[in-house]
Design a protein around this nucleic acid. Structure first.
Lengths: 146, 146
DNA sequence: TTATTTCATACTATGTCAATAGGTTTTGGT
DNA sequence: ACCAAAACCTATTGACATAGTATGAAATAA
């Protein structure tokens, strides 16, 4: 019942790109350093985000990545589903075909449905913009402490 | 982000024991047959429930299992945590020690906290008695359809 | 004493996770 | 034209978890 590093790192990448979005290209190396994540592993994760169009890449020297749209367009749910696959707690709820022949008489299924709804409700109502805002509020508060 | 068969089967075992609780001992073989689960695998799962005192066992011939207390005493959350371990979506939230040194500045942590709360809120508010009630309501409705 | 049942432990095949490794391609700067 | 920097691509790896099987020991009612 754990979210893997892939999903968690993907969220942090999106937040990092949003927080450091100056219009310049951001290199994987920079993100890896800031986030303390293996550069090569990050490469794979960011390529998923790239193929989905969540980030835009520029190849070659001076290349790198930029967040594609405004951070408010990206929910945590979108990013997790993209990188992790389905967030539903049981396979029975995946896809439109219910291959389990016990589904009709399966009392536990309603619990898993409620659980899936609860999970969706959280992750689909937080955006990268929300996280960014919090981060900047914290950094602002920190500035007064110097 | 999936619940494993161990946890799901454990819930079904508890429900089965509750539904078929006549005071007589219920054998692993019977549960396995009713639930369509491997007998040997079930043995391992029920032994976890037994060691935790959720079920009572009687050894030897004519032995078997009985649910220990009234079904309303067992939430899905209890059963899942016992068999699956922690239900929190990230390791950062497990235990009292936060070994991650980024926790102070980790904006995503609040999302995982909300997610953990949402999950807990579902699984801790459904009991085996609730599932049993639903099952019996359905079986009652079925009887009229004959 | 025997059949039935729980109890305990070891084993196995498969898959996933979290990387690491080793390249190829693209491109700006010189 | 060349070089270095960067993205891009694919294969491989070691560790671990999952979902069982397999084998047998211990307990007990009949």
């Amino acid at each position: 019942m754990k979210i893997s590093t892939k999903g968690r790192y993907a969220v942090r990448v999106m937040l990092d790109l949003a927080a450091n979005n100056t219009g310049e290209c951001i290199k994987v190396k920079q993100i890896a350093e800031r986030q303390g994540i293996s550069e090569k592993y990050l490469e794979q994760i960011i390529s998923i985000l790239n193929r989905a169009g969540y980030v835009k890449s520029v190849r070659g020297a001076q290349g790198g990545y930029r967040i594609a749209k405004d951070p408010k367009n990206y929910t945590i749910g979108m990013i997790l589903r993209l990188t992790e696959g389905s967030l539903s707690p049981v396979a029975c709820l995946d896809g439109d075909v219910n291959e389990c022949e016990r589904c009709d008489t399966c009392e536990t299924l309603s619990v898993w449905k409620d659980l899936a709804d609860a999970i969706d409700n959280v992750v689909d109502n937080v955006t990268i913009a929300d996280l960014l805002e919090k981060q900047q509020a914290r950094l602002g508060a920190m500035a007064y402490m110097i």
